[in-house]
């Protein structure tokens, strides 16, 4: 089946290193997305026409454009246009943050809109100031709704990093291909075994994360 090639030489370690590259890109992008997404999401709830208009266009672009096209635009197009040579990793983080910020902002906006008006009113009626209402009542509820949703975003990002091999980043999928190519003669059927192991690696990376989000969701359900 070709599993044996995995244990030849440094192959397994190389696969793990590839996974690490993917994780690094996605985690960095997630952190940037969460910070920028919260800011943008809060701006969106202000309902200022200019902000609403721009954010709508931004969200639509992210939804319509395949991530791969965005990767090509940033990595190849941007470099040609400006002469600035971005590394493939930097381009990947930019594209993933661009995508993640939009998703995150939409989640934040949704969570904020889902807090019933009565929560603001009853806090006000109890004598809380606006700031106290946000600190003690509104923001804790938003965070409880937001964290499980943003964890889902992390797992989706990890999965989507498989695209970055298209701009030459050697991540787990690329390493797998290299292993298959290198062993074409000795193990012509290695593809199944190698990709099965990659499947398992992605699963091991994403499953605990998605399980953790389910746990939080359950713990905080109202």
């Amino acid at each position: 089946m070709g599993i044996e090639v995995i244990f030849k030489g440094r192959n397994l370690i190389r696969l793990m290193e590839g996974l690490l590259v993917a994780m690094k890109i996605s985690l960095l992008s997630v952190v940037i997305s969460i910070v920028l997404g919260i800011i943008l999401g809060m701006l969106m709830t202000l309902k200022k026409p200019g902000i609403t208009f721009i954010s709508r266009i931004y969200l639509e672009i992210v939804r319509i454009m395949p991530q791969m096209v965005l990767l090509f635009i940033v990595y190849f197009g941007f470099a040609k246009m400006t002469g600035i040579n971005l590394s493939a990793e930097a381009s990947a983080v930019i594209v993933f943050s661009f995508w993640g910020t939009a998703e995150m902002a939409d989640l934040v906006r949704g969570c904020m809109a889902s807090i019933p008006k009565i929560q603001y009113e009853s806090s006000t009626a109890l004598g809380f100031t606006r700031l106290q209402t946000y600190v003690h009542v509104i923001i804790p509820q938003i965070i409880r709704r937001l964290i499980p949703l943003s964890i889902n975003l992390i797992t989706r990002m990890i999965k989507t990093t498989s695209l970055v091999m298209m701009i030459g980043i050697v991540e787990v999928l690329k390493v797998g291909q290299q292993i298959i190519e290198a062993n074409r003669k000795s193990a012509p059927n290695a593809a199944f075994g190698v990709f099965a192991v990659i499947f398992l690696l992605y699963f091991l990376a994403c499953w605990p994360i998605s399980h953790f989000s389910k746990y939080l969701e359950k713990k905080w359900e109202n």
């Binding site: 009565i118 009626a125 004598g127 509820q141």
Partner: peptide
């Protein structure tokens, strides 16, 4: 007005307890 709101208690129609 905040000082007066403490002195005027209000209970609403919908359940408005803090769910968290």
């Amino acid at each position: 007005i905040k000082n007066y709101r403490e002195k005027i208690g209000m209970v609403f129609q919908s359940y408005d307890l803090f769910p968290h």
